[in-house]
């Protein structure tokens, strides 16, 4: 296969969520000497961005997003250590979790895949994450950004509880707080004192990159 055929295959097979084919093409690409960054940035990420665009247009639904995300995730399992070896730049560290009392994680997991694809180091604490667990993980991993996810109006108030816990632990100013989930709005994010909100996975990546630029600018000022 030519490099172009491999990249086109990766793009097309990720788009339709054909996990085994994406794995096979990733291995073929590596065997033929293709750089992991090339496969990631020239095929896998553009494909997942197209999946996101089709979702926004209503052409794709959650199942299609999930299978495409899983296909890309499989490729990332192979590429991640190689990207680390080649010194590929990490955009930043993103700590993620679904708030206490909430077990919904499909949106969160899609965001994780998109963030990883965009070069973030993602640490996922899972679901039903209590404020003290977020505090401990921030102390341990020192992320640039922490993301709180909630799917229920009844669990959204945990955003405020988490932010209060960060403040009490003296960590609030050390980390950017982003919030998201189906019922969440910019107004609600502002009301609870979050730094950022994004309505979907693509927008989350964009907003997270903006925050990283701001942090780098502040660090070098």
């Amino acid at each position: 296969m030519t490099p172009d055929e491999i990249l086109k295959g990766l793009y097309d097979k990720t788009l339709v969520g054909n996990g085994p084919a994406v794995l096979e093409l990733t291995r073929t690409g590596l065997d033929t000497g293709m750089a992991p960054e090339t496969m990631l940035f020239d095929a896998l990420i553009p494909s997942l961005e197209e999946v996101g665009a089709r979702f926004e247009r209503g052409d794709f639904f959650v199942p299609e997003m999930l299978i495409a995300g899983k296909a890309m995730s499989g490729a990332l399992e192979i590429l991640r250590p190689l990207l680390a070896e080649t010194g590929a730049h990490t955009v930043g560290t993103f700590l993620m979790g679904t708030v206490k009392g909430d077990v919904h994680d499909i949106g969160k997991n899609l965001v994780n895949i998109m963030l990883e694809g965009a070069g973030f180091h993602v640490i996922d604490l899972g679901v039903q994450v209590a404020p003290e667990k977020f505090v401990a993980a921030i102390g341990e991993h020192k992320p640039d950004i922490v993301g709180f996810s909630a799917f229920l109006t009844t669990t959204m108030p945990m955003f405020k509880a988490n932010i209060n816990a960060l403040r009490k632990a003296g960590l609030r100013d050390s980390v950017v707080v982003m919030v998201g989930g189906a019922p969440v709005t910019q107004e609600y994010a502002d009301a609870v004192g979050a730094d950022g909100y994004a309505p979907d996975a693509s927008a989350t990546v964009k907003r997270a990159k903006e925050f990283m630029s701001q942090r780098r600018a502040l660090a070098t000022a």
């Binding site: 969520g17 959650v62 199942p63 999930l66 299978i67 899983k70 994680d105 997991n109 679901v127 039903q128």
Partner: peptide, 18 residues
């Protein structure tokens, strides 16, 4: 609607925390 008829492997993704 969840695509489980076409992709039964997604069951875990949807329901593992229930």
């Amino acid at each position: 609607e969840l695509g489980l008829d076409r992709h039964p492997e997604l069951r875990e993704d949807y329901f593992r925390h229930y």
